[in-house]
């Protein structure tokens, strides 16, 4: 059952990224271009996701366990350290440069633009190398 839930969640997530326009790097970069061809759409994507996520996660916080697993794996780190800030800062630079973050980039593999096949392998190498060093 948990694999069916994972598949459904992935499909719905990917669909959300496509209809929101977030698989289009130009749309993401235009959100980030306040002083140019600004497109506020990304704020509506975040707004929509948080509008359902905020009450939803609050409710799930009261459940004792998930439907198809033995326990919730809530994030438990609380440290506000250099890794969090430095890693996020570098992530933002990469996101701004390419207009891609991991979800849209993976989803876009089956759209098939050439650039994705350059970005995603580089991203995977970055993740893998970091994981090895960690």
């Amino acid at each position: 059952m948990n694999l069916i839930a994972s598949l459904a969640a992935g499909l719905i997530f990917g669909f959300g990224l496509i209809i929101s326009g977030m698989v289009n790097p130009a749309k993401v970069q235009n959100f980030l271009d306040l002083f140019g061809t600004w497109d506020p759409s990304l704020a509506f994507v975040m707004g929509g996701a948080i509008a359902i996520g905020l009450p939803g996660f609050w409710l799930l916080g009261k459940w004792s366990k998930p439907l198809f697993a033995s326990a919730f794996q809530w994030p438990n780190k609380t440290d506000l350290d250099a890794k969090l800030i430095g890693g996020s800062a570098l992530f933002g630079i990469g996101w701004g440069l390419g207009g891609f973050c991991p979800g849209p980039a993976v989803t876009a593999l089956t759209i098939g633009s050439t650039g994705v096949f350059i970005f995603v392998p580089a991203m995977l190498i970055g993740m893998w190398a970091t994981k090895l060093v960690k």
């Binding site: 991203m123 970055g126 970091t130």
Partner: peptide, 8 residues
């Protein structure tokens, strides 16, 4: 961009 996104 890909390397920074993956690493970061």
């Amino acid at each position: 961009a890909g390397l920074l996104v993956g690493f970061g």
